[in-house]
Design a protein around this nucleic acid. Sequence first.
DNA 1: GAGCACTGC
Length: 700
Amino acid sequence: MAANTSWKPRFWKPDSERPVSTITPERPINGEDISNAAVYNPNSFLSMSLQRQKLPIFMHRTNILYLLEKYETVVIVGETGSGKSTQIPQYLHESGWTSEKWKICVTQPRRVAVVTVATRVAEERGSFVGGEVGYCIRFDDCCNPEGTRVKFVTDGVLLRETMSNPLLSEYSVIMLDEAHERTLHTDIMIGLLKKIKKKRKDLRIIVSSATLDAEMFKEFFNTNITSDRSKDTAVILSVKGRSYPVDIHYTLSPVPDYLKSTVDTVMGIHREEPHGDILAFLTGQDEVESVVSLLIERARSLPKGSPHVQVLPMYSGLPQTEQMLVFKPPPPNTRKVVVATNIAEASITINGIVYVIDCGFVKIRAYSPKAGVESLVVVPVSKASANQRAGRAGRVRSGKVYRLYTEQDFVSLKPATVPEMQRCNMAAVLLQLKCLGIDNVLRFNFPARPPAHNMIRGLELLYALGALDANGKLMDPLGTNMAEFPTNPMIAKMLLSSGEFGCSEEILSIAAMLQIQNIFLSPSKQKTAADNAKRKFAVYEGDHITLLNVYEAFLKFKKSSRWCHEHFLNYKGLCHAVKIREQLKRLLLQFKVSLISCDGDVDAISQCIVSGFFANAARLHPSGSYRTVRDDHPLHIHPTSILYTETPPQWVVYHEILQTSKEYMRDVTKIDPSWLYKLAPQYYEYGTEREIAAKRAKMI
DNA sequence: GAGCACTGC
């Protein structure tokens, strides 16, 4: 894909050696220079340019460019609809921050956002994506190494780039968009950029954030330690957005059952309020489905002649075709009611929403380092979340939000959700940081420091896997190679040792399949049929080999979507697994791991799994449940597992634990206990408490 | 015989 621009922006400076903007404090640019930008465009782009000038951010153009000259970091508080994501990169590009040598990089937390923003910007420039404007997300690189000047990426891609180019030396400006979402990758990038800035004074950083985090980000990057504000190296700029007012309604007293209240509120709006679609937020799939069926029932008893309602569920596990329905406009004389999980808070936007119902809760992942267990818990939303949800009602015209809690409850909510960094397993992050040359990870400058316990647990695992030595130093090549994998370290280890077990072909398929959620579909109306279909792939050894069978059958039936449909398999997920497998295979080849098949030698495969997952070993307890081998922690086999039978195996390894009503092991495989000692002697033979404590002390 | 928010490399 070649660059396809018919015109050059006015401040284009192809030969500049370093990024120098033409705008300096001493020589502020004339208003006319900017507002007449349209003149330089071919006529067909005239209206596009005028549209750009109407965006609220436009009046800040000069100021933004000025601030970027004067300060090293600019924190932009841009409300939704301000145009910051699409316009700021163009302002930079137009004013000399790009050249043959320099690019601008803009990150987004989500893939869709990367593609849509890049496409929009390319359009506005009269160009095509892959020319001067490009994007790069996993499995989809749409950049031209020679021609692309403005590059949109997911924050995860930028993090990977940092591993091959630690100073990010091709960029003059890096803009982190939606930084207030505080995703794991954004937070790591923020910490890294602070470190990179020490060596790259010329690098400019733009952090786009909501009001709440702005001051924190500013102080994080500000290197001025004096009280003289004029020496600050970071600054905040606020830009008004463009959205409609939203009326907020609270309940007068706490609601005993928010499912019932949601149903009542929907029907109340439908009876009394003018036309406009409704979006209701609940915490999980179950809740969504039950409210949907209650609503359908209630809708049946609507009086004749009154407007209809169309009730639609929306959650991530819903099959693609059913998800698409919520984006379609409703039939005439019909009000659309979308009942959704948190997916509708930021990840997707549904047009036409005027009324929002907010149950006030959200389901989030929490991590308990003591048992190394991740759990899903329902907690009250944060104020930021509640406001984000409310904002969904003000996109087309002024709207209303019905909060199913009292105003006092709202006031006592936490200001923001705890950053992901503080509630996840740290092993993968720590390995990446080590790989970036950050030896003392415990003192790394995180914008939100993770609990020390989480870090220790992560370091222990990395040591047990052989990625770190007893002093916490990165092992070469094992540790460095493991860091390259876009998987958790246990999978990476399993993949890297698969050559020695002679089953790399099979392990590649298993590793790819473990990355996919909801492989086995189970539509509520055809549960038994779905269960029977699943059983066709099942084997006595467990879930990993079953996944392998599914993958191989998928290939055997030529990746047929019809075959998937007949066997209740997630077609899109399986296609994704094929792509992931290709990527993992490239990495294995790069690290000279031989690609061989074990031709059905299940023991070889199981042993290879143990080489990565030995820490997740459990044995059957007389009570019928399991206990972890390491610390006797009680666990159960998840009912969706193939090994959920009357005669469960004595010893198993599991892929992960999920705590809901009990602590369940998901994806379980039968093992021979002697493999644990054989494959992980350092973990099981020398694991007395005292020695572990000594090792911990050394690593810190 | 139980039930899993959402991203991302």
